[in-house]
């Protein structure tokens, strides 16, 4: 028994009569545009997910006692281990130095007999002001924003740093006059 195939209908509903002319709007393009948009949105959301909303680290801003507790010309090492900051008081005020050597990131030691910060990794040396003067360190130690809180305590904000070579040590916040 042979099959009789009925003839194809002339036109299927919804398709353009002339196959050569494409209209700008078509379900197909709408579909793929919105599908792609959905995938991009979901992908972006996933990428955003990878950045944590909270960090379980010590806070960047911390209180550092009273300015009266610091003596002129003495480098205060109380917050070196806990917050990676040196507090130095000179005649005019107080500044907070980062304990990260600007060469490759080691932690220098303060040698008070020789009045310099000396990094044990490659020998970078810094004056009490933080200016580098020997060894491979390319630039001075960075300062952190320092301010006086309402209750009279020092507040250090490690989220804001000041680099001397960019002239930022002159900006407000890098030096607390006291």
């Amino acid at each position: 028994m042979s099959k009789v195939n009925p003839p194809r209908p002339a036109a299927k509903r919804g398709e353009p009569a002339d196959a050569g002319r494409r209209s700008f709007f078509s379900w197909m393009s709408l579909a793929w545009v919105s599908f792609t948009a959905s995938m991009l949105a979901a992908g972006t959301a996933t990428a955003r997910f990878m950045f944590p909303n909270v960090l379980f680290e010590p806070p960047l801003t911390f209180r550092a006692g009273r300015p009266e507790e610091l003596q002129v010309g003495i480098v205060d090492e109380r917050f070196k281990d806990s917050n990676q900051v040196w507090l130095v008081r000179d005649g005019g005020g107080i500044y907070a130095l980062s304990t990260t050597c600007t060469h490759l990131g080691c932690t220098p030691n303060w040698l008070s007999a020789e009045q310099k910060f000396k990094c044990p990794c490659h020998g970078s040396g810094f004056y009490i002001t933080g200016i580098n003067f020997e060894g491979p360190a390319p630039r001075p130690l960075e300062r952190f924003a320092i301010d006086l809180a309402d209750d009279g305590q020092l507040v250090i904000d490690k989220g804001r740093k000041f680099q001397q070579e960019k002239g930022q040590w002159e900006l407000p916040g890098a030096y607390l006059e006291f």
């Binding site: 509903r13 919804g14 379900w27 793929w32 919105s34």
Partner: peptide
Amino acid sequence: NGLHKWFAISSLLLF
């Protein structure tokens, strides 16, 4: 066309 239409609708909804 029907399929495209459904795909479009569902993709829009997905977005």
